[in-house]
Every structure is written in structure tokens, then in C-alpha cells.
């Protein structure tokens, strides 16, 4: 709708620039009426016609629709999940998914709470424990203390858990234990599918750690 108002405004400005010089001529030039009528008829019609031919008149609705859908989906999914978990509080997977969604929204305290519930329900699931550790670390801004203990716990359950390996490597890197960081990350690298963003990021981290290790005597 607004687009068509803009189009009308454009046409008015363009016609004014053409017609005002025409009308201001004194004496009035021969055939000025026909010229005015011709421009008033042809110019808007041609503008609309060309725009329909060349432009994307429906793109605005389409984009608005996609945007509405995508934002509706995430928000709606979270609300629906919160509702569902009220009636089934022992659903570990549900709490896990909710926790990850909270992390994506930056709601770290909520994430930690949700993942604690998940971890209580499934104390032997390395994936959930490692995620719980991450949420806690994000909340307190450090991997030290309880998060690191949780990471070790997760690794004891499964030495193949991606999140646990990543965080264990990061913790070692922060303490400048380059060799240890490399151990976890190289192991992780083997597990990750190649040509993915995560694989590239970890490969980059491995190279950085290797450089650091060469730098220290």
C-alpha cells in the first residue's frame, strides 16, 4: 500500500517538473492542453506498467510473510514448550531443548535452570551435562569451578561428546595448557563432519593453539 503511495508521489513530482514549465509559458503555447493530458495519461500508466514488468510488486508481502513465520516459529515454540513442560516435568529432552533455546536468546539464568532440571532427569547423559556446564559458564562468565567439574563428569560418561570436548579444550586453552587444549580439540575435529562451519572454526582453533605451543619454549 505504502509502495503505491510512494509511486503516486514520484509521478506527481516528475509531472510537476515537466508541466509547470509548460504552463508557465506566456503566451500559452499551442496544444498545451493536449500535451498536459497526454503526459497525465501516459506517464503514470507507463510507470506502473514498467514496474509490474521489471519489479517485484509482490516481494514486500512475501518477505513480510517469511519474517512473520520465522519469528512466530521460535517464540511460539518456546512458549509451547514451556506450557508442555508444566504438565510433563520429567521430560529431559524437553528441558534440554528449552535450555538451548534460552541460550540462543541470551537468557542464561533461565537456561541454567532448565538444564539443571534436564540434568536431574538424565544424570547419565553426557550431552545434557555438557550443555548444563555451558549454560552455567555463560551465566557466571567463566568455566572455572562447577562448570569444569561438570565437563569432566560428562567426559567420564562419554569421551565422544562434542560439546564436552570443545569446552574442555577451551578451559585448557584459557589456562594456557596448549598441549591439553590440542588433545581435546584434535579429538573433536575427527568427530565433526568436514566442510561445516563448526569444523572450520575448530580447525582454526587448533592452528592457533599449535602456534602458541611453538611460541613457548
Amino acid at each position: 500500500m505504502t509502495l503505491w503511495l510512494w509511486l503516486a508521489a514520484y509521478v506527481v513530482v516528475a509531472l510537476a517538473l515537466l508541466l509547470v514549465p509548460l504552463w508557465r509559458q506566456k503566451p500559452a503555447p499551442e496544444g498545451w492542453r493536449w500535451q498536459t493530458v497526454g503526459l497525465l495519461a501516459v506517464f503514470p500508466a507507463l510507470t506502473i506498467g514498467l514496474y509490474f514488468h521489471l519489479g517485484a510488486p509482490t516481494i514486500l508481502q512475501e518477505l513480510a510473510l517469511t519474517e512473520a513465520q520465522s519469528s512466530y516459529d521460535v517464540e511460539g515454540m518456546v512458549t509451547a514448550l514451556e506450557e508442555k513442560l508444566k504438565s510433563t516435568p520429567d521430560d529431559a529432552e524437553g528441558w534440554y531443548a528449552l535450555g538451548r533455546a534460552y541460550i540462543a536468546f541470551g537468557r542464561h539464568a533461565d537456561a541454567e535452570a532448565a538444564l539443571r532440571k534436564a540434568a536431574t532427569q538424565a544424570p547419565k547423559d553426557a550431552r545434557i551435562i555438557a550443555q548444563y556446564a555451558e549454560a552455567m559458564a555463560l551465566g557466571q562468565n567463566s568455566l572455572d569451578g562447577r562448570p569444569l567439574e561438570l565437563i569432566r563428569e560428562a567426559l567420564e560418561i562419554s569421551y565422544e561428546d562434542e560439546k564436552a570436548l570443545e569446552l574442555a579444550g577451551l578451559a585448557a586453552f584459557q589456562k594456557e595448557n596448549w598441549a591439553e587444549a590440542l588433545h581435546y580439540w584434535r579429538r573433536l575435529l575427527k568427530l565433526l563432519p568436514k566442510e561445516t562451519e563448526q569444523h572450520d572454526a575448530i580447525a582454526q582453533a587448533v592452528r592457533t593453539a599449535e602456534k602458541k605451543m611453538e611460541g613457548t619454549p
Partner: peptide, 9 residues
């Protein structure tokens, strides 16, 4: 779209 329209005008 406004830019596109402007070029058509």
C-alpha cells in the same frame, strides 16, 4: 523497491 521505481521514473 523505491529505488527501482525511481529508476523507472
Amino acid at each position: 523497491e523505491l529505488g527501482h521505481l525511481a529508476l523507472i521514473v
